[in-house]
Simulated scan of single mutants.
Amino acid sequence: MMTWRHVTPDDFPLLARWLAEPHVARWWHHETSAAAVERDFGPSARGAEPNEDLLAFVDGTPIGLLQRSFLHDYPEYLDELTPLTAVPPRAMTIDYLIGDAAHVGRGLGTRMIRSALAHLWADHRDAECVIVAVHADNAPSWRALERAGLTRVAHGEIDPDNPADDRRHYVYRTDRPTD
């Protein structure tokens, strides 16, 4: 059973450890100092940022981080997506990571995305769809999206998280279930 809860400041040391893991650092390219983690996750933990940072747990053990937000709350990102694909007014996006390398390659990413989508639809009744851009070279991530039921709808250039990467991205989408 996968459960979720909002990130709190008590989780920052865990996030710093996860962000330092090579499999995470490669794609998130995030500073891991206490000050950097506070700077980047503190506003969400305090409710001062429109995105939500959630921890995913399996049998009580934290296994991953999920960020979710409405795209309209981040106009710069929205400006990069709209030339590639239509973005409805109430579109959301997610970003995610599996923290511990021991949990990678076991299907937990796909399971986490499926669970996250179920919770997103329940928590945000006005969300129309979820649109996710992922770097073209990050095959484990885009394969997890595909296994979770998202469809590749576009490809194009978006600024990468890691400046060592080129701008090639795939864009995935899933619409709110109708049943």
Rank of each mutant, 00 (worst) to 15 (best):
S44F: 13
L97D: 02
A25C: 05
R167A: 13
A133N: 00
D165Q: 11
W18F: 15
L71I: 14
G109L: 02
G64N: 06
S44G: 14
T82N: 10
V24R: 05
P43G: 07
M2F: 15
G64L: 03
A45F: 11
S141E: 01
H30Y: 07
E21I: 04
H119W: 15
D59P: 00
T3K: 12
I98Y: 05
V24M: 05
F70L: 14
E76N: 14
E128H: 15
T110Q: 11
G42A: 08
A86I: 01
L97P: 01
A118K: 14
G47T: 06
A139E: 12
P75M: 05
H124T: 04
T82A: 10
R147V: 04
D123H: 12
D100C: 09
W27Q: 00
W28P: 02
M92W: 12
A122N: 10
R114M: 08
H119A: 15
R167S: 12
R147N: 13
G156K: 00
L14F: 05
Q67C: 15
G60C: 05
V134L: 09
A16G: 06
P13Y: 00
Y74M: 10
L54G: 01
R143Q: 12
A35D: 06
V58N: 11
T32W: 02
G99P: 07
E76T: 14
H72D: 14
R5I: 07
R5A: 10
G107Q: 11
A86Q: 05
E38H: 10
R111Q: 13
P163M: 00
H135E: 01
D100L: 09
L19K: 14
H135W: 01
A164N: 07
H30V: 02
A116T: 15
N162M: 00
Q67P: 13
T32V: 01
T8K: 09
R111K: 12
T174Q: 12
H124Q: 08
M92K: 11
Y77A: 06
D179T: 09
L54F: 03
A101D: 09
D10A: 11
L19R: 13
